[in-house]
Structure formats: structure tokens, C-alpha cells
Nucleic acid binder design. Structure first.
Lengths: 232, 232
DNA sequence: GTCTCCGAAATGGTCTGATGACTTACGCTT
DNA sequence: AAGCGTAAGTCATCAGACCATTTCGGAGAC
């Protein structure tokens, strides 16, 4: 087995076996090199690999530690790779977001939390009164994130955040011919979601969220039209 | 900015800017070092980071390449980290799997594919006739994977595969007191899913899949009971 | 006695140079 | 024209040195 792979397997084994739990500190690098039988370069490359995946963290001058191994934190590391995925792939990811966010929105609606509806209304007020693309993107993220957080599953929130962050790069809301129509449709969608949450109607909430994101998918598809199949 | 971070940002920028598309080859390491202004060690650590995330691939003796940037391939890289997540986190992940797989199962049921039902039936016949834990796990994965694949979204398939792989480590199906009851319940759940697909009933398929995975969640919770809150 | 500050030790971060291993492609032989 | 061997290109690994940051204990001031 290659040196770096050997180091990688060894480090993972130390965690998987329970020898080192979340937050635990690894031995110093020279000691690990000796233990794993690889050079420091190879060990460090293995450490970087697991670091990129959110499994371990190196702190300069302090040591190397096992991360909290929290699913949400690990998923948020995805953004480094997801942000590089081409449009075709983003459309598949948006289907994931649509399904998950419909679920989370329904869960949020099922909760008895009057404060949530208030906060969401405040966000929408600000969102509807701006035409700045960056501001729109930021407030839209805040709105959906607040709902997912209320849904109660931080993993779902992390996943939808990552996917939304990727979609945001396409900047649907650039001033252009369709800007007004798109903005109006988007605002209406948000209000429908809020209404379902306010009336505590999970089914309506799921439908509204699903439709809202499906609309986003349509806009993104329009940015790069797929070749139409030839009809016989 | 730290050297490795500088290299990481530079490499990502080369892809994000479109300078290098999927499958493209990077310049040789010495050239990249010069271009990015870092030493070879730092560059290689950055390359390893992006390699762990499935964004680039180094081939010994050949060169370093941008990966296909396929969402499914990138997500499957996460098994390296997901497999280390503790049980509490796995339960949150299983909720994601439940929602996504219910969706995919409904989509599979909506398709007109008689061959699918046949293949699934064959898998279940084999699954029901074995009591070997490894065999059960393998056939169960094959069954669910076939359904998700038929669902048509490879990203959903990749995600559910990763999560299922993690849950499989807990080996619910070890021979024990409850083995027979658990096995019977599981087999029945699979048959209900297959029936919904055979009769092309998406709603029933989603319900059956959701219930089947919810059952798995209950079994996993039983493995490590959560502390009950004290009642006043 | 307590607090502050400084410095030494511990530890990860970076660079350099050399060598090994694998892949690829070219040119030679048959 | 096909097969083969060699050489060039490229990544993989190792070793050693030095830098940057954190941490902690001890010396000194109050």
C-alpha cells in the first residue's frame, strides 16, 4: 500500500476503533510517523486529506485533533467541492434541496413557534424592499435557513445551505429583462411559504416550498437550455 | 495567507474560472509551484485536500487532472468522513435518507418499467432465504440502490448509498434474541415497497419506503438508548 | 499571595534537495 | 506493420533544516 494511503488508513483506524473520540488530540507528528511507518511528508498529506473532509483539525503550535464529527459541520465542507460542480450537476442537486427543504418546511410548520413567523415576516419585508442582487441572495438564504433550522434537523439545514450556496453563484437576480417578473414570482413564493407556516399547515408548507424551489430550477435551466431531442 | 491555503485557492480558482474543465490536466508540479508561489510540499498538501474532496485526481507517472466533477462521484467521497460519524449523528443522517429515498421510491414507482419489478423480486427472493448478516446487508443495499437508480437522480442514489453504508456498520442483523422478529419485519417492509412499485402507486411507494427506513431508525435508537428527560 | 510578563519548550508549517516508481511515447528492431 | 525496449516526463516518498505559533511554567513586580 502506498505510504500516504497507509497513513490515511492508520489515522482513520485510530478514530474508528474508538481510540480517539471527538475532540481528542493526536500524538505529535514525529511520533505518528514512527507509529505509522511513513515519513513526515506523507503523514502530513494524509492529515490534510482528513482535514479537508472535516474529520481532523490541525492547530499551529498546539497539535492535531479529531473534529467534533458533527454531521452538519462535515457536510458544510462539501461547499469546497460543490461550488465547482457544473450547471448540469447543480440541477440534480437542486432536486435534493427541493425534497429536503419541503420536508424541513413542513416540520417547521408543524411546530408551534409564533416567534418564527415573526422573524420570517421581518426578513421578507426587507427582501421585498430591495433590488440589490447581493442583498436579495443574502436575505433569501436567511429566510430558508431560518425555516430549515426550525425544522429541527441540522444535517438537513447544512445540506440545503451548501446547495443553495452553489445555486446562488448563477445570480438569477441580475438586473435584466425578466428581473421584475422573476422577483415578483419569487416574493410571492416566499409569502406562500410563510402563510403555510403561520397557519401551521405542514402539507401546504411542503407544497409551497417544493413549488418555490422547482421554480428556481426552471430559471436555472433557462440559463443554459438543454438540447431538445429531435422528434421523429 | 498561509502557503497551503494560497495553493488551495489558486487551484480552485483555476477550475472555477473555467481555465480547466472536467478531465483537464494541470501543469507539472514544479510549474504550478512557480505559478502559485509556494513550495512543492505546500502544493502537494493542497492537491491532497482537493483530491480527498473528489475535485482533482493525481495519477502516478502521468499527471494531475480535474475530476469529472460529477455530483454523485463527489458525494461518494464523503463515505470517508461519514463512516466516522457517531451514532447520534447517524440518526440525523437517516432522516435525510428516509426523505430522499421515499422520494426516489415514488419516482421509481411512477416509471413504467416491468423489468425493474422483476429484478427487485429476484433480489428479495434471495434476501428472504438467507440469514447471513453480511449477505443480508449486501442484498438490502442492492435492493434499495436499484430502486434509487430507477428514480433517475444519481445524486440522490449516491447520498442514500453513503448513509446506508454508515448505518450498515451497526449490524442490526446479528443473530440474537430479536433476530427473527426484526428479519420478518424487514422482509415485510421490502415486500410492501415492491408491491407499490409493481402496482405503480407512487404515494404508496413513498409511504412504504418511509416507514421501512423509520423502522431502521427505531432499531438503531434501541442500540444506544438516549437518556430520558426527568419528569417533574 | 497574586498578578503580570517573559522566555523556553512543544508543535505544526514551510522550504529545499535528492531519490524512487510509474506512465507515456518515441524510435528501433524484427 | 507490429512488437519491444528505452528514455523522458511526472508524481511519490524520504530526509533534514528552519520558521511561526501556541502553551505553560517560572521569575519578578505589586
Amino acid at each position: 500500500m502506498a505510504a500516504t494511503d497507509k497513513a490515511l488508513a492508520g489515522l482513520r483506524q485510530m478514530i474508528a476503533s474508538g481510540e480517539l473520540g471527538p475532540g481528542a488530540k493526536f500524538p505529535p507528528e514525529p511520533e505518528l510517523c514512527d507509529h505509522l511507518g511513513v515519513s513526515r511528508s506523507s503523514l502530513r498529506e494524509a492529515v490534510r486529506s482528513l482535514g479537508a473532509l472535516g474529520v481532523i483539525e490541525s492547530r499551529h503550535g498546539s497539535g492535531t485533533y479529531v473534529s467534533a464529527l458533527d454531521p452538519a459541520a462535515i457536510i458544510s465542507r462539501f461547499s469546497l467541492s460543490v461550488e465547482l460542480i457544473p450547471l448540469e450537476g447543480v440541477l440534480e442537486l437542486l432536486e435534493v434541496r427541493r425534497v429536503l427543504e419541503a420536508h424541513a418546511t413542513a416540520a417547521a410548520a408543524a411546530r408551534q413557534d409564533p416567534e418564527l413567523a415573526e422573524r420570517l415576516a421581518t426578513i421578507l419585508d426587507r427582501l421585498e424592499s430591495t433590488t440589490d442582487a447581493t442583498q436579495i441572495q443574502h436575505l433569501d438564504a436567511e429566510f430558508h435557513n431560518a425555516i430549515c433550522t426550525a425544522g429541527g434537523n441540522s444535517t438537513v439545514t447544512a445540506l440545503t445551505d451548501v446547495i443553495r450556496g452553489r445555486g446562488g453563484h448563477y445570480r438569477i437576480f441580475e438586473p435584466g429583462a425578466d428581473f421584475d417578473a422573476i422577483k415578483r414570482t419569487s416574493d410571492r413564493g416566499h409569502r406562500e411559504i410563510l402563510a403555510a407556516i403561520t397557519t401551521r399547515d405542514p402539507a401546504a408548507a411542503a407544497t409551497a416550498a417544493s413549488a418555490h424551489i422547482a421554480q428556481t430550477e426552471l430559471w436555472l435551466r433557462a440559463l443554459r437550455p438543454v438540447p431538445q431531442p429531435e422528434l421523429p
